[in-house]
Computed example of a mutant assay.
Amino acid sequence: MTSTTYQVKGMTCGHCVNSVSTEIGAIAGVSDVQVDLAAGRVTVTSEAPLDLATVRAAVDEAGYDLVAA
């Protein structure tokens, strides 16, 4: 298992948290998604390291911007 924390810009409410969690959670191999709304951080636990482009695409699909990994 591996855990990576990403900075996500634009999240402001519980709906934002749900959208980001759902999209990232749908990535193959992801077992857990924890969102710290106040800090704008998303910690993803997965079976293997995730491709940054895949995570970025999921965050974009949710309507937010991946700032950094």
Results as ranks from 00 to 15, higher is better:
Ser3Cys: 01
Tyr64Cys: 03
Ser21Glu: 11
Val44Asp: 00
Ala28Ile: 00
Met11Thr: 03
Thr43Arg: 14
Val8Thr: 05
Ala28Gly: 12
Ile27Val: 10
Lys9Thr: 13
Arg41Tyr: 09
Val67Asn: 01
Asn18Glu: 12
Leu66His: 06
Ser3His: 03
Asp65Val: 13
Arg56Val: 10
Ala48Thr: 14
Thr54Leu: 13
Thr54Met: 12
Glu23Tyr: 04
Met1Lys: 08
Val59Lys: 12
Val30His: 06
Ser21Arg: 10
Met1Asn: 09
Tyr6Met: 07
Gly10Arg: 04
Gly40Trp: 02
Asp60Ala: 15
Gly40Glu: 01
Ala57Met: 09
Pro49Ser: 08
Pro49Met: 07
Cys13Val: 09
Tyr64Pro: 04
Ser3Glu: 15
Ala38Gln: 10
Leu52Glu: 15
Thr12Lys: 12
Asp51Ser: 08
Leu37Glu: 06
Thr5Lys: 10
Pro49Ile: 06
Leu52Pro: 07
Asp36Pro: 02
Val55Ala: 08
Ser21Met: 05
Gln34Trp: 07
Val33Thr: 05
Leu50Tyr: 02
Gly25Phe: 05
Asn18Ile: 00
Asn18Phe: 09
Ile24Ala: 04
Tyr64Val: 02
Val42Phe: 07
Leu52Lys: 13
Val67Pro: 00
Ala48Ile: 04
Gly63Cys: 03
Ser31Tyr: 01
Leu66Ser: 08
Met1Gly: 11
Leu52Ser: 12
Arg41Asn: 13
Ser19Met: 10
Asp60Lys: 12
Val8Trp: 03
Glu61His: 13
Gly29Phe: 03
Asp36Cys: 06
Arg56Gly: 11
Val30Phe: 09
Asp60His: 00
Ser46Met: 08
Gly10Pro: 01
Ser19Ile: 05
Glu23Ala: 15
Met11Arg: 04
Val67Trp: 05
Thr4Ser: 13
Val44Tyr: 02
Thr5Ser: 14
Ala62Trp: 05
Val8Ile: 11
Thr22Arg: 14
Glu61Arg: 15
Ser31Arg: 11
